[in-house]
Amino acid sequence: MAVASKPLRVLVGKVGLDGHDRGVKLIARALRDAGMEVIYTGLHQTPEQVVSAAIQEDVDAIGLSILSGAHNTLFRRVLELLKEQDAEDIALFGGGIIPDEDALTLTAAGVKALFGPGAPMEDIVKFVQGLKPQG
């Protein structure tokens, strides 16, 4: 049944310690320009903070940016917490300096998509638009 769809809600942020926020901010702007509701967490978030904010804000997706090399630890921890809190319906995607090999294992573990440097903004927006709003 076609109902006027409510806008997707996306939480984007930076986990871990690095402060390279150019990419995440551009993506936040692009998603917002595409009509989504975007919550930007700011820098230096822990996985715990991200997951609790995502649940509180009732988002459809979480997008995380990591350029420090800590992606293996941090993405896995976010997945774990989503599972623990029974919030696996929230899609996790991300980007950063992530070697192919790591990207493969992370997507196998449940990260929906990872975008590397040079990924067209359009692809990222389309990917998020393709996610279904909850309930």
């Binding site: 871990g16 310690l17 690095d18 822990t46 350029l67 420090s68 090399g69 800590a70 293996n72 630890t73 941090l74």
Partner: peptide, 9 residues
């Protein structure tokens, strides 16, 4: 907070 970041960059 350092977990996963040590010696990486």
């Amino acid at each position: 907070r350092a977990h996963g970041e040590i010696g990486h960059c």
